[in-house]
Simulated scan of single mutants.
Amino acid sequence: MRAQFILSALPILGAQGARILQSNDDGWAELYIRSLNGALNAAGHDVVLSAPADNGSGTGSSDKEPSPRTDPCEYDSCPANSGPVGSNATNPRLNWVNSFPVTSVRYGIDTFAPQIWNGQGPELVVSGPNVGSNLWLAVPFSGTVGVAVYSSHEAGIPAIAFSGASDGNLAFNTSPVPARSTVYAQLATQFTNAVLAAGAPYLPEDVWLNVNFPKVEGDCTDPAKFKWVLSRINPGVFSDKDVETCGSDRLPTENSVINAGGCRISVSVGDSTDKTTAPAEKQAVVLQKLGGLLSCLD
């Protein structure tokens, strides 16, 4: 992993980077979230992880106070009878919550992060990368998306939800680390750096970004070959016009971007009030901030 790739957008931020809270819906001990945790830390950010103790995929925006555990966390990453919440024995920045993904990010924002950051909150919430895509019809049910929506709507913190089409759950200590986990971590770090480098406020109010990576296979194993395309979550046949870009006022759907091949990544501006596509004026803000990173579908 070339250092210049990860650090490309970081110098504007200063040596300390940003305070980033990480979560997901696949569990705190899932390999994808741990690979990204390592990449974000290597890029100079101050990262706190707060994710569910077990796989909570498909739980959407469910939120319930955590209950004490009786069995070990996923991949035996915490012992039985560990209580309702816990932390890694040697790293208090890695935390689990025995409840839904949204509950875990709520605890991260309200409890774990302020303890580590002397009362300060996160500047950005990063969810995922999810094991598997979160496109259109899957979006309302995704816990990874639920984390980003809660953060941006309820907590008022800008958020990004990352998902990767290369699936298959793996433990945090898998060795050797497969290319898919490393590549997704590199890409997510690059995108996170770009959002932060564009300056605060990082995203419009009540907006989250839904980012879907294609499979890491064939020609798509080199992060430099991937292209970022502004997209929309749901088809827009009867909706208002999108921001005008690439010669059109209708953005391609996430599915069309991913299905087009060519190592294309869909970047949708989500409305945190209903998990659909945000209006054109909010898309325009994101386009202005990230225009140098984005490319056209054709």
Rank of each mutant, 00 (worst) to 15 (best):
P129M: 02
D25F: 03
T192R: 01
S248Y: 02
L290C: 03
L251V: 01
R69G: 12
G168N: 10
W136T: 13
I258P: 05
D242R: 04
G261Y: 00
F141T: 09
N130A: 15
G168M: 04
P176G: 00
Q16S: 13
T103W: 06
W228A: 09
I33C: 08
I258V: 08
A15T: 05
P122W: 11
A179F: 02
I265E: 06
L170H: 09
D240C: 07
L124C: 10
L137A: 14
N259G: 06
L135F: 14
N212R: 03
R19T: 06
S77F: 09
K275M: 13
D222R: 10
L36I: 13
K282E: 01
V125M: 10
L36N: 14
P214V: 10
S133G: 11
S61Q: 15
E65I: 07
C220L: 00
D54W: 12
V139R: 06
V147E: 02
W28P: 00
S152R: 03
P66M: 11
V105D: 03
L124E: 09
E217C: 00
R93M: 09
D46Q: 15
S77V: 07
G119L: 13
V139A: 03
D242K: 02
L137Y: 12
P178I: 09
L187T: 04
A200L: 05
V269A: 10
L10K: 13
P84N: 07
N173P: 00
L124N: 10
G121W: 12
D240V: 09
D63I: 10
D25I: 06
L7I: 02
V229G: 11
Q288E: 14
T59I: 08
W136E: 15
I20H: 07
Q4P: 04
P101T: 08
W28Y: 15
C220G: 07
K289M: 03
T174V: 05
G14Y: 00
C73A: 15
L209R: 07
R34W: 03
N88Y: 11
Q16A: 15
N24P: 04
V229P: 15
D63Y: 10
A278W: 12
Q22M: 15
V125K: 11
L290T: 10
Y184A: 08
D219C: 01
K282F: 08
A198W: 05
A18E: 14
S35I: 02
G270M: 08
S175P: 02
N134F: 05
S266M: 07
K64E: 15
A89N: 02
N169P: 05
I116G: 10
N210W: 01
P66W: 08
P252W: 08
V267C: 04
G132C: 05
S8G: 04
G58A: 09
G292W: 07
E254P: 03
D110W: 03
V267Q: 03
F162V: 01
R93S: 13
I157V: 14
E30Y: 02
L293Y: 11
S163V: 03
Q186I: 01
S239P: 03
V145G: 00
A198K: 06
G27H: 01
